[in-house]
Amino acid sequence: MYPFNYHRPTSVRQASALLGKSEDARLLAGGHSLLPMMKQRLAQPSDLIDLGLVEGLRGIELKGRTLQIGAMMTHAEVAASDVVREAIPALAELVASIGDPHVRHRGTIGGSVANNDPNADYPAACLALEATIVTNRRRIDADEFFVDMFETALEPGEIITKIQFPVPRRAGYAKFRNPASRYPLVGVFLAKRGGTVRAAVTGAATCVFRCKEVEDALNARFAPKSLDGVTVPTDGLNSDMHAGADYRAHLIVVMAKRAASAA
């Protein structure tokens, strides 16, 4: 790890000011993506701004038909929350499957969403559930938020404060893990709200995306059987030693079926 300056602000305002002071400053939430990168000397922030003591970034509540989760809520807290389990059980299940128990004790929803790792679970839930990412400055639709690999719509000095999820009628998540890293090779989150189904896929490409073929099939009828015979094009899908694009395309349909039967 390269040396850096460490800051521990107590308000979003202070954190934002610190973030604006240096081009190479980074926010530290759970640190379970950033610190491993820094340990490998692949990231060299000048300043780390620890959000651990910042007020107003915690809490889980259901406001009407909207589930609201503070950015610094850990995966373990979200997974164990009765509010989440009742409102969107598929989300609780997704969160309970992130990384391993120790990662879930430190990793946060805000950190995961801001990092936009192409293999992360949370972005699939955000995109399928039409989440709103709330920052210290504005509200951003999930559709606009996830731009590309490790790239989001966040601007310099902008800090995620909470994520809002509209409660769907049905939702389900299924993933197939990379045998080594245990990140999803393919993860599919399905959500049905009103009359439409959204299917978000993570792990399969450079960024989370909606899968039209799956959505079309499930919009006809929301049932695993609707996906029989559906194929997904391999264009844009990742190909690596663990899974070729064709295998990933195949797994998208299989995981969509499993998510549909779980929903």
Partner: peptide, 11 residues
Amino acid sequence: AVKSCTTLAVQ
């Protein structure tokens, strides 16, 4: 339980 290799002492 946390990984002490992925936690800063200052945290």
